[in-house]
Design a protein around this nucleic acid. Structure first.
Lengths: 172, 172
DNA sequence: ATATATTTTCAATAATTATTGAAAGTTCAG
DNA sequence: CTGAACTTTCAATAATTATTGAAAATATAT
């Protein structure tokens, strides 16, 4: 396969993949394009390569910067702004975990804690099922919260090297 | 807070949460409703409680069954079908991990493997960046694949009990 | 068999979400 | 300052995705 074809296939796949994760297709495609570009690209180059409008590029680049996945790069002697993506996939994953945790878990947990306080007789079947389910989700979420914090602090080698052995060897 | 209000708040939150994850709002709401219902519900009860059409309920319940999160329940003497959700949140999480892995990682990996074979001179900057990025993503994905398999096989206690200590104590 | 209850399908429609493009805003060299 | 280069905004529009509801299919009781 030629490089040009491979690139566009990667961009298409990454875009499709993104939509499964609540990310808009264009944002994922721009991310993919920057991931495989050796040098930073200008907004115009992104427009041309993906055939999308200036406004669309601008908004999605801003969103990618917001997520900490892309940064503006100043190139000496150039008036335009350029953009480049973090290429270390471990860092990318950590950044996404960090942001999603902030945007989702940190919002969900207080709600769950409040819902756990529902008034009424715990012997009532309806109330018992509700409080038990909420408590289960809360406990799980709190654990996930702690675990993700630990992962974010850990380094790549730890994940790529020995995580499976650790997981597999533990049965208590 | 009263139980009725708490339920509808939970249903709303779970629905909003779901949309961040590429799941449609209604499907997540039906799931939430069943999660907090002590007894299985008929399609009609779901329609009434969420104010949605019969067709919509039918399709989303089918999808939930497809994901292994809900099952049909036969109630003696009743002609209608009833539906109930798995309430053990660890099992729910495992089921979701299993399905997403199947629907996403298992599709992405072969593509990445093929894209790694791109033809051309590896000293060319464009080709080097492409192959390095793809190789990084592939390595990460393969590791995630193994790790998730291990998690799926593990039991809840392992996650809820000692995972953080394990993670935190490991630096090699 | 027939009538009735229940589920499923799917074309039409509604609601949501993404995209465009042109105008307004900003920056900066001369 | 002025004007050209560039970026940002956002109302209008397009594209996508979800929902309805009524008709068709299926299942069950008598």
């Amino acid at each position: 396969m030629k490089i040009a074809e491979a690139k566009s296939q990667f961009i298409a796949s990454w875009g499709r993949f993104g939509t499964n994760w609540g990310i808009n297709r264009t944002m994922a495609q721009i991310h993919a394009l920057l991931l495989v570009s050796p040098d930073p690209l200008s907004a115009e180059e992104v427009m041309d390569q993906l055939s999308i409008s200036r406004g669309n590029v601008n908004m999605n680049l801003r969103e990618l910067i917001d997520w900490g996945l892309v940064e503006k790069v100043i190139i000496a002697g150039e008036r335009k702004e350029f953009f480049s993506a973090e290429k270390d996939i471990w860092k990318v994953a950590c950044q996404i975990i960090k942001e999603r945790k902030k945007r989702e878990l940190d919002l969900l947990l207080p709600v769950l804690r409040e819902l756990g306080e529902v008034e009424g007789d715990k012997r009532d079947k309806e109330i018992k099922t509700f409080t038990d389910t909420i408590a289960g989700i809360r406990k799980f979420s709190e654990q996930a919260d702690k675990t993700l914090d630990t992962m974010i602090k850990a380094d790549e080698h730890w994940f790529l090297g020995s995580l499976v052995k650790l997981f597999a060897g533990r049965r208590d």
